[in-house]
Simulated assay, not measured.
Amino acid sequence: FNFVQLGVAHPAGLQHLMQQRTTAVGYELIKTEDNNLPVLTAMSEIAGMLLPQIAGRYLETSSSGRGITLGGVAGIPASNVLIIGAGMVGSTAALNFNGMGAKVTVLDADLNRLRQLEFLSHKKVSTALATPYNLERYLAFADVLIGAILIHGKKAPHVVTEAMVKKMKKGSVIIDVSIDQGGCVETSRPTTLSDPVFLKHEVIHYCVPNLPSSVARTASHALNNVVLPFVEAVTENEWSAFEQTEALRRGVYVYRGQCAHEEMAGLFGWDFVPVENLVKAT
């Protein structure tokens, strides 16, 4: 069991798993019958809660930021936060940024998600469809950009181009949470907790994969809560667990040494066998 992180995965490590005839389950690939991603949801909630404190830190003058607070004070307007993606990360972040007094706008292609967020925020969070026009329009005023796009089992598309980044305010902050899937901002590249930011076109980029690892105790407890039932299923039922538990089967990307994930196979040019076929042959 591990996070695959297709956007930053090393093929040599994956090939080693296959050579050792390993069976590997990706946490973020586990998907229930009602299309819920239980492990990813728990980690995304933590990431969403972390984002305001990270953004606030790098907006400070000492961090080469714009020297502003997230929330406004009397006579001074609040900062503008743009969030791309209204999933668990984006929605949690929006509510927390709003709670700190920031002016929040969320873009998504799914109207139902936007409608749900407006309901949860009591209309205190603004929403708009994620179109190229709206992206350019809101980016020009953004003090903080949160990239929170997830396409299950695939690399994230670059919806924010380098040309768009060049038009952003000097000292503004980009936090690309999608960096685990390759990043949704063209100028992003993976960073580390020990060296989390870099400057590109005078815009601060924070692109740390596995963001919840910065609060390891909270993340570990949350991970254990959702992963334990799947681990117990494997220890109690062994190989039949993959046949009996659909959510677990959906999370498999290597099964007894064979690549069982179509997107991974396409990414690295490997042969692919559907996990259902491999499980039946066991």
Score class of each variant (00 low, 15 high):
residue 125 V to S: 08
residue 95 L to A: 08
residue 104 V to Y: 01
residue 98 N to Y: 01
residue 154 K to T: 01
residue 108 D to G: 13
residue 126 S to H: 13
residue 160 V to H: 03
residue 58 Y to G: 12
residue 83 I to F: 03
residue 109 A to C: 08
residue 133 Y to G: 03
residue 113 R to T: 07
residue 78 A to I: 05
residue 112 N to T: 14
residue 71 G to Q: 04
residue 147 G to W: 01
residue 85 G to D: 01
residue 109 A to E: 02
residue 155 K to C: 12
residue 87 G to K: 12
residue 86 A to N: 03
residue 114 L to G: 09
residue 130 A to Y: 07
residue 98 N to V: 01
residue 88 M to C: 09
residue 113 R to K: 15
residue 83 I to G: 09
residue 104 V to P: 04
residue 166 K to M: 12
residue 152 H to M: 01
residue 101 G to C: 06
residue 79 S to I: 00
residue 124 K to N: 12
residue 158 H to Y: 14
residue 160 V to Q: 04
residue 123 K to H: 14
residue 62 S to Y: 09
residue 156 A to M: 07
residue 83 I to Y: 01
residue 144 V to A: 01
residue 136 E to F: 00
residue 134 N to A: 11
residue 145 L to T: 05
residue 159 V to C: 08
residue 166 K to F: 05
residue 145 L to A: 02
residue 63 S to W: 02
residue 157 P to H: 07
residue 109 A to V: 14
residue 86 A to L: 08
residue 75 G to S: 11
residue 92 T to D: 11
residue 142 A to V: 09
residue 138 Y to G: 05
residue 78 A to H: 02
residue 156 A to V: 04
residue 161 T to K: 14
residue 160 V to R: 01
residue 123 K to D: 13
residue 114 L to H: 11
residue 160 V to Y: 06
residue 147 G to D: 05
residue 81 V to S: 08
residue 61 T to Q: 11
residue 114 L to E: 08
residue 94 A to M: 08
residue 122 H to D: 14
residue 86 A to W: 04
residue 111 L to N: 13
residue 63 S to Y: 03
residue 91 S to V: 10
residue 139 L to W: 03
residue 127 T to L: 02
residue 115 R to N: 15
residue 80 N to R: 13
residue 106 V to N: 00
residue 69 T to F: 10
residue 65 G to R: 09
residue 94 A to R: 09
residue 102 A to C: 03
residue 168 M to N: 12
residue 68 I to D: 05
residue 147 G to E: 06
residue 122 H to Y: 08
residue 70 L to A: 05
residue 58 Y to L: 11
residue 135 L to Q: 12
residue 88 M to F: 05
residue 145 L to G: 01
residue 96 N to I: 11
residue 84 I to Y: 06
residue 120 L to R: 15
residue 138 Y to W: 14
residue 76 I to K: 12
residue 165 V to P: 10
residue 116 Q to E: 13
residue 152 H to F: 07
residue 73 V to G: 07
residue 95 L to F: 12
residue 93 A to R: 11
residue 163 A to P: 04
residue 155 K to V: 06
residue 165 V to D: 08
residue 114 L to A: 06
residue 70 L to I: 04
residue 122 H to M: 09
residue 167 K to P: 04
residue 93 A to K: 12
residue 140 A to S: 13
residue 159 V to S: 02
residue 98 N to I: 00
residue 122 H to N: 15
residue 137 R to M: 09
residue 115 R to P: 02
residue 146 I to M: 04
residue 83 I to K: 03
residue 73 V to H: 05
residue 70 L to M: 03
residue 141 F to V: 13
residue 96 N to M: 13
residue 78 A to L: 02
residue 120 L to F: 14
residue 94 A to H: 11
residue 159 V to I: 15
residue 100 M to G: 02
residue 107 L to R: 07
